[in-house]
Simulated assay, not measured.
Amino acid sequence: YRVHLEHYMTELLDLTVAAFDYESKTPTYLLTQFLSGIDWSVGTVNLISSIDLKSDKRITILKALTLLAGECKGELDFLENRVVDLKSQIGSNTQLHLRYDKNCDYIEKISDTSQLCTRLYCYGRDSLTIESVNEGIEYLDSAYINNYKYRKEKTIYTNIEVASDLKTYAEAYLAIYELPFLTYKVNLADLAKREIWQHEIINLGDTLRIYDDDLSLNVKVRVKKITKDYVSENIYLEFVNYLYLPKFDNIAEEVAYLSEVISNIVSYDDPTKVSVDAIDDLPTIL
């Protein structure tokens, strides 16, 4: 027999909440409202800034929670005792290493070039360009542009009003999207069931490293998906280490963030390469 078990969280796809319009409410308040009257309860919430949240139609509770997490820039963790955590980042930064010759028998590396960009045109308010601060050129080229037969051009539009800020934004954006997005799939033996390996417990959102000589892998990744086989006691993991630009309340906040990113993102050993450690500090998408 083949039995497929779904996580408790799928229950929240069968329950709905009426249209709502909340103004200046804390994430804890909103999470409590959405879970009120059902068998789920509020867990740890470490986000405190008040937000506005609105839906003009009845939606599932899971959709409402997803909207909430997106608006407050947090991540949801659905625990097995029907408790929901809402944190700035779930999981922990572990010291675990996954190796083909140690605890896994399959490692797959997937390279996604669908959002790849090697030449970026970036425009601000009133058709502002970066020409005045970029030697008369209105675009930025990636250091990897010659790695491909054809350019991968992308155009983005912002409300930025200052050319230097626009260039800072464009540089940080290009540094993120000039390389393929990578995901990894791993078949892992559940060593945590053995007494000497009890510390090797892996949870959703955890950060760890994958090593593999054949694939030239030594990467820091976050756990995106966990599937357990209770017959073979194997664990199938999916990891992600690509990035996204978070939402900001205003342009000044966004430019300040990207200025800090670009100041740390260049490798000291090779200025044309992005520093892996700097990238690891940026937000990841689950």
Rank of each mutant, 00 (worst) to 15 (best):
Y173N: 09
S41E: 08
R194K: 13
L286D: 12
K54C: 10
H97P: 00
T60V: 03
T183Q: 12
N264F: 00
L62I: 05
Y148P: 06
I176Q: 05
M9G: 07
S132L: 08
G136R: 03
Y268H: 11
I196W: 03
L188N: 11
L76E: 03
I226R: 01
K247T: 14
E195C: 06
R2V: 07
P283K: 01
P283M: 01
A69W: 01
A252T: 15
T168C: 09
N93L: 11
D213Q: 15
K109Y: 08
L30M: 15
N147L: 10
V42A: 00
L13P: 02
A278F: 05
S164M: 07
L204C: 08
L96I: 12
S142E: 06
L215H: 10
L96W: 11
G124V: 02
K149I: 12
K73G: 01
L79M: 04
G37T: 00
E138D: 15
G70L: 02
F239N: 07
V83C: 09
K25S: 15
K73H: 04
I265D: 02
D126H: 09
L31I: 08
N264G: 09
S49E: 15
L31F: 04
N159C: 07
E238H: 10
N103L: 02
K25V: 12
V261H: 03
S142W: 02
V266L: 01
Y173M: 05
D56E: 15
I262T: 13
A163L: 08
S259R: 15
E238N: 14
T16W: 03
R58G: 01
A172N: 07
D85P: 03
E71Y: 00
S114K: 11
H4S: 10
R151V: 10
A172L: 05
R99S: 11
K54W: 08
C122W: 05
I48L: 10
K247Q: 15
K25Y: 11
A19M: 06
L245Y: 02
Y100C: 06
L76C: 04
N93C: 05
I59H: 01
K185E: 13
G74C: 00
K102Q: 09
I202E: 10
A175K: 13
E80N: 09
Y22C: 03
L258K: 14
C122N: 08
I262V: 14
T227P: 03
D281V: 00
D126I: 00
I265W: 02
I130H: 07
S216A: 14
K109N: 06
Y22V: 04
T129V: 02
N234H: 07
T66V: 01
C104E: 05
L174W: 08
Q198V: 09
A172D: 06
I156Y: 05
